[in-house]
Each structure stands twice: as C-alpha cells, then as structure tokens.
Design a protein around this nucleic acid. Sequence first.
DNA 1: CGTGGTTGGCGAAGCGTTTCGACGTTGGCA
DNA 2: TGCCAACGTCGAAACGCTTCGCCAACCACG
Lengths: 343, 343
Amino acid sequence: MVTIADVARHAGVSSSTVSYVLSGKRAISEETRRRVQTSVRELGYHPHAGARSLAARRSHVIALMVPLRSDVYVPVMMEIAIAVTTTARRHGYDVLLITNDEGADGVRRIAASGLADGLLLMDVELDDARIPVLRERDTQASLIGLADDVRGLSCVDHDFAAAGALCADHLADLGHREVAFVGYGSGVYHRHAGYAERTLAGFRDRAAGRGLRFVHRTCEGTYESTAGTLARVLADRPGTTAFVVQNEGAIGPLLSLLRTSGRTVPEDVSVLALCQDQLAEQFAPRLTAVTGSAHELGRVAVEQLMSRLAAVRDGGRPADDRVLLTPVLTVRESTGPAPVRTP
Amino acid sequence: MVTIADVARHAGVSSSTVSYVLSGKRAISEETRRRVQTSVRELGYHPHAGARSLAARRSHVIALMVPLRSDVYVPVMMEIAIAVTTTARRHGYDVLLITNDEGADGVRRIAASGLADGLLLMDVELDDARIPVLRERDTQASLIGLADDVRGLSCVDHDFAAAGALCADHLADLGHREVAFVGYGSGVYHRHAGYAERTLAGFRDRAAGRGLRFVHRTCEGTYESTAGTLARVLADRPGTTAFVVQNEGAIGPLLSLLRTSGRTVPEDVSVLALCQDQLAEQFAPRLTAVTGSAHELGRVAVEQLMSRLAAVRDGGRPADDRVLLTPVLTVRESTGPAPVRTP
DNA sequence: CGTGGTTGGCGAAGCGTTTCGACGTTGGCA
DNA sequence: TGCCAACGTCGAAACGCTTCGCCAACCACG
C-alpha cells in the first residue's frame, strides 16, 4: 500500500504538505503543488478511507436506505439509486446501500459508527420510526417522500397532488364527464404511503372543480384484480369514458381487457397513466402519461444532503429544504375526445 | 461520541479487553464478558468504522458495481442488489454502491483506498477492462456474469445455455416443428454480453437435436421493433407455431400484435418467455416461462466473496469458484400443443 | 515444593490521515 | 533599516481501534 508518507518522500516534502495540496486547505506554492501532484500520479496514491474518516471525522460516504418491499414500481427505485450514486460521486461522496428492514436500529448503527456522514431515506411513511432516531443524534438526512414531522430534515418528492390535478384537467379538457380512477391495492393506502392519497386528493379536488364525476377503485395490479375492478366500474358506471391508472401493474391487463370487451382506445375510452415515460411508450397504443423524474428525485435529495453537510461543516445550522417536483403530462395516443353520447 | 475507552472505563477493564470481548479473538472470563456487554448496551456503543478499518486493515464493506445502462431488465438488477445487501449484512458486511461508468478506475479507487474489502461486479463483459485491475492488486472479487478469463476470481451466473435448451425441449415436446426466437437488440449481441449468445446457443443445439427448425431475430423491445420482427417472421416462415421471447420489452407488444393479427395464444401459436416469474404472471394469458432466481444470484455472489475473504484472512489462497444456476421452466397458459396442420 | 503450562487481563505500539501551532522567509511600508 | 504581516512548510499530536507481547495468578504434576 502506498501512503501519504511515500508520496511525501517521493516529492521531497512533508506529509502534511501533501495533505494540504490534496485538500487545498492552505496555500501551497505552484511549484510544490505540481511536484506533489506528479508524485501522487506516479505512485498511484489513494488516501486510505478509514484513516481519513478517523482523522477528519467524516467519511465522505452517505447511506441510502431502500425498501425491500416492492409494491412501488421497482425500476423507479433503481433509477433513484443510480441518480443518487452518480450525483454523490460528483461531490466526492460514495453511497452505502442499506435495506429498510434494518429500520431505526440501522439508522443508529450507521450514524453512530461514523460509516456515513448523512442518510437518504426512501419509502418514508408519514409517521416513520426512523425519524426520531435521526433527531436524537442530530444526524443529517434527507427524505425521498414526505412525512408528517420533518423538522430538522430536508425532503423531496413528486408533487402527486399536482399530478392528480393534471389528470383531471386533461380529461376535462377532452370533454370527459365520467371517469374511473384505478389506484393501488388497499394495502398501499393503509400504510399511509402518502403518494397514493395525495394523487387521489389532487385528482378529486380538480375533478370537483371541473365538474368531473369519478369513482376511485383499488386494484392489486394483477390480471384478476384488474378484471374485477374493471367489471365493477363498468357495471356501476356504464357511462365511464376514461380511466386514470396509477398502478403500473394494472396497465397491461386493463388495455387487454378493454380490447377484449370490444372497446377501442382512445375512440371509445381514454386511458391516462401515472407512470414512467419509458413504460408508457411500451404499450399499444402509446399511453398519455403523467410523470415525474425519478432521476431528479435522487439528484435533488443528494444536493439537499450535501448542502446540509456543508452547513454543518461551516458551523452553521442546516436549512430544512422541502422540494416538490412538478409533474409533466405527455400526450400520446391513448387519450382522445370523449365519445359523442349515443343514448 | 462514545468510544471503546468509555466502555472500558464503565466496565472497569482495559480497552483491549473490550476489543477482545467484541471480536472473540481471545478467551475472556464469563464474568468480564458479561460486564463489558452490559456496558456496551447501556452506553449504546458502536465501534467507529474508520478506526476499525485503519487498525484491522479491513473495512467490513464490499462494493457492488451496477450498470448504468439498462437494456437488461431493471427489476432484476434491483433484486440482485437487495439480495447482495441482505446477505452481506448477515455476514457483518455493508455494501457500497458503485456505478459501472467509473470503470476500471473505479475499481482501482475502491481497492486502493481500502474502502471495500472486496468487489462484486455486475454486467460483466466477456473481455472486461476491470478484471486486469483486480488482478494487479489482487483484489478479491466475484463476478455476476461470466467472462473469458476468470483466473483469480469467482463467478456466478444463470445457466443460460440450459435455459435455451429447456425452451427447445418444451416446445419440441409439445410437437412444434417451426419456431421463432425473438432476442435482444443487436447492440446486446455486439457487446458480447454473453448471456444472449449463450441462451441462443443452448437453444440452437437442443433445437438441432430435437429436429426443430428455427429463426433467430433481434428485437429492440419497442412496439415498432417488435411489429417489424413479427412481420418478417410471419412472411419468411408462415409455418411458425411458437415464439421464444428473451427481450422482456417485446413480450407485451408481441402478445398484442398476435391478437390483432387474429392469432390466439396458445391455440394458434405458443409463446414461451425467458423472464422473471413475476412478469410472466402479469400477462394474459399467463406466460409459460423459463426463469433463474435473481435473488440467488446475489446471494451466491456474496457467499463466494465471503469465502474468498475468509481464505485470505487465514493466510490461504482463495479457491476460484464458478457456479451456474439451473433455470426452471414453469408451464402456464401461453404454450400448448402445436396446432394441427391444415394445408 | 518447584516447574511448566494455561488462563485472563493489561499496556503500548502502531494503522494513515488531518490539523494545529510554530517557524523561517519574503515583501511592503514607515 | 527595522517591523509586521502574509506566505509556505514542517513537526507532532490526535483520531479510535486492533493486536502483540508480557505478566500475574492459578492449576496440575512429578
């Protein structure tokens, strides 16, 4: 292993000088800096992470806590994780992956061991047991998702209410008057996962404002469940001319079932999805969809955490940032004007 | 921060004794052990990770290098990452997430800085630039996927050839004589990603043995691409009675297109998928599928790496393990007997 | 009762960094 | 010319842990 002392010897300076060249925390003459940098390169020197974190009392690592459970669409989580990792690297940080099942103890473990300087929490519940633990050691953290009490934390999430409203607006603009909202399985609502309720609320409010009648139906995302949901909707509200689908798993089945039942999309019914663009593109017809950027979610969360860490370093008190990302509606082929009523 | 010295003071012993209690590397009297453990609990002591890695020259962290690119089905990657993390935790290790775009330099950085004790590489190419770097510092690593030269490494992968063979057997058993293999986009084959070629080869060999005629067609996984592929197949080989689909993205479009063209699955054509069970269950009809366990892939990779690290600790030379996981065929509703020929 | 081996615990020397205070050297200014 | 402030560099003291060697106390044995 090549140490800072090796570099120092090679460059003919002391090891503290090498350290200052690398950190830039003190002025170093151009001449010396160059010599040191050359030595670093020639010897292939990489500072020992453990020694660094011991001496500097910071590890240059952040922890990302991801859910084990996956009723949330999995590729989204992966996209967030990737965005987090690349953004963190750009700040000179590495990312430690922790699973949610470690729970509050996991947070304690990471914070107390100095393994990570800060945490990113995904799949936050409104009343999350990990949050008090963060406060008790005042560990810097940023949430991906919203919680009830976020004092001392930053957070970022999609603006699900706006997404719901966007859906209602689009369908109302197209002249639809009776709409079905196909949501997640009831478990998701019971967990108070927030996003499901917020989307629905946003949709409900705007629908009311636009004079849109609608029913909300839960759906587990399997073929059977979707079939059941659809049957009930068609029985209860035969005049339904549009579907909003939030559960990614239900999209394929719903399209199949509509086709099977002799309905054409979008001539007879419109289908509007709340899902990633990539997924929306894969169906036939391509789906009009309301989307938020998962990548952006990860990126912003890291930026928030970095700014908190910077504030602490400068002896200040970090600001509690709260960002809601504006969703985007992309019109494709699955939505069209409400069919003319033929009574 | 509570240190080992605090624990020692609290328990009335020296800090080395605390260390030995925690590591179990020397005999400690029952009495002392209990006192120390009580103190640890009461003070909420967690060893400082940096100090530990500095003194013991190992970090209890392994790095997982994941691909940025995602022509491989993303949920699979996530499942592997989760399996890796939980398995590693069970061994007292944490997982550092690195992205593939750091490439060989990333491997160097992690290994040289002592951030991780070993590496897990995903999305390995047959001739992967990261492998020589591993050898040059002889860093312990395990590959998820196969490469050409794996001396000094362990690796684990699905037995794609067996999966291909399983497909051929199943269709031959059902009496099919003319089959189309819908593969990945040509880019995947050009990258020599291995798995695509191995599946195809396994299928080809077994098909030959069973007297199965087949064509292989690349497909990008979009709706258009699938439509083009299907049209060509039907034009060139009108007698085709079964499709094997490896590209997850092509499954939905293919099913839609077949239905649109008036063909019923499985009465007119059989569809056999190479994909996760979870995905296969979501289509209508449910797909007969050949699957390997992504979770198992991650688990085995970690076990391999752990055993290598243990060997090094004991002063031995690690064994180069090589595991191929046997795929499983699950018969569902999308495959059936070849239709009786009506000329 | 001396000898030799175990057992249980302690002290101290690192491990490779960062960072603080100190110390020449310069250069500008009175 | 003398003084004071940068400026650039160095030495040494942490940082919290592991581990090696050592030592006392104890036991069993001849």
